[in-house]
Deep mutational scan, measured.
Amino acid sequence: MAAAAAAGAGPEMVRGQVFDVGPRYTNLSYIGEGAYGMVCSAYDNVNKVRVAIKKISPFEHQTYCQRTLREIKILLRFRHENIIGINDIIRAPTIEQMKDVYIVQDLMETDLYKLLKTQHLSNDHICYFLYQILRGLKYIHSANVLHRDLKPSNLLLNTTCDLKICDFGLARVADPDHDHTGFLTEYVATRWYRAPEIMLNSKGYTKSIDIWSVGCILAEMLSNRPIFPGKHYLDQLNHILGILGSPSQEDLNCIINLKARNYLLSLPHKNKVPWNRLFPNADSKALDLLDKMLTFNPHKRIEVEQALAHPYLEQYYDPSDEPIAEAPFKFDMELDDLPKEKLKELIFEETARFQPGYRS
């Protein structure tokens, strides 16, 4: 834990890192770190609560700039109880001085990944967590956004079992017609939660990839272990087919990539493993919904509104309290091709509203 900075004593240090967030945020305490930044909790002297502050230093890398800009653009436009918001952003007053960006968010005690390492969940908890994931996802999908990296560590939890989806750095506007060349190379989302079509096709992607990830998360809540822990690309596919069985001819016809289709045709026939054999203690309604989410063919996979209306979630289902976005989200430009200098300018502009004396 960093010592509390005395008023006016300059930035606090946390594990050798400068955290320049005073005077409003003090009493910093280390939480963890990701690929390009550290997260601390801090005391907000204005709202009198502890908050989470993520320090991001992305400006050396085009990919990190892209992810940072995506996350900020999306989260500043989203407003939903099951999606983490941005409360404040701290950065230098000029673009030349801006080396880091500090993002202030609600402090959540833990995440689903940490929880599943230590606790076996009751059916009631599984049901409530799944409902909140789908409630947040309904809003995301209504904005025409794909999260693309749903996994237990991106689901934040607090002691009252509130759940918030975080990390929109890989999110995209849904565009089933656009052929994202190089899709697989830039697709760094965790393999275990990846839909089979991501490994088999490169053309376009749809909201059904997020539903697949939610199915993987439900299976993990039922058993405290990942359902498809593939060691590499082909191993991942083999794990999936080992449980779902061989795809039907109709399902194979959806695979545009001939090499991928021929690979699947070359494999020995596998039978589907019954879900109640894998999860003998699970609620039968939970397994019915799991089956509809972990469907090989993305066109037959359940959609988020149908999933919310499934009998497993009937005690929570309330369409009048499951809000959607006001308007579909649009990125003005494809960020993939922009140089990091341009992305830095866009991050600077996007964060201006939090600067003292800002006038829109």
Rank of each mutant, 00 (worst) to 15 (best):
I74L: 07
P274I: 13
P339W: 08
C161N: 14
T160R: 05
H125D: 01
D106V: 05
F354E: 04
E220Y: 06
T63Q: 10
K259S: 12
Q132S: 03
N123H: 10
F19T: 06
I56C: 11
G182R: 00
R301G: 04
W212L: 00
C254N: 10
P226S: 04
K48M: 01
L184Q: 00
R77G: 13
C65P: 07
G242K: 12
M293P: 05
A309N: 14
P298D: 14
A5V: 05
P280I: 10
V104R: 06
Y263N: 00
K330D: 14
E334I: 15
R301F: 07
L218P: 01
V214Q: 01
Q17T: 12
A327P: 09
D124C: 12
L234V: 06
I217V: 11
Q105R: 02
A6S: 04
T351R: 14
I31M: 11
A189G: 09
E322C: 15
D210K: 02
A143T: 06
H180K: 08
Q105M: 14
S360P: 01
A35D: 01
G215C: 03
L150S: 04
Y113T: 13
V273R: 14
V18E: 10
L278E: 09
A143D: 01
Y317N: 01
T110F: 15
C65Y: 04
K203Y: 05
E220M: 03
H147G: 02
C166R: 01
E71C: 09
H125Q: 01
Q306H: 02
Q306D: 13
R194V: 03
V104H: 09
V49P: 11
R24H: 06
D167Y: 00
M38T: 14
P268F: 12
L267N: 14
C166S: 00
H180D: 03
L112V: 10
M199K: 00
F19M: 08
M293H: 03
P328Q: 10
E197N: 03
P152W: 02
K272V: 10
A2W: 15
I84F: 00
A352C: 13
P23S: 10
L218R: 04
A9R: 06
L112I: 11
E71Y: 13
L289N: 05
C127R: 06
V14N: 13
E33P: 06
R67D: 14
F228K: 09
S29R: 01
E60S: 14
V304F: 03
E220L: 02
R91M: 12
K48H: 07
A189M: 08
Y43G: 14
L252Y: 11
E60D: 00
K117G: 07
E186A: 06
G230V: 01
L287Y: 08
K207Y: 04
P356K: 13
W275N: 03
S248E: 11
M98A: 13
P11M: 02
Y316F: 00
K231N: 01
Y43H: 12
Q17R: 11
N262G: 10
L112Y: 06
A42S: 02
Q66V: 05
I255A: 13
V173E: 00
E96D: 05
V304T: 13
K48Y: 07
G230W: 06
I74P: 04
F279I: 00
G136Q: 05
K330C: 13
D321S: 14
P319R: 10
A352N: 12
P229L: 02
H120W: 08
H178P: 04
Q97Y: 11
L69Q: 01
G242V: 05
F279N: 13
M13E: 03
T206N: 04
E305H: 15
V145H: 06
D291V: 01
M333G: 09
N201G: 04
V101F: 04
L343Q: 00
F78T: 13
T190W: 04
Q315K: 02
P23C: 14
V18H: 13
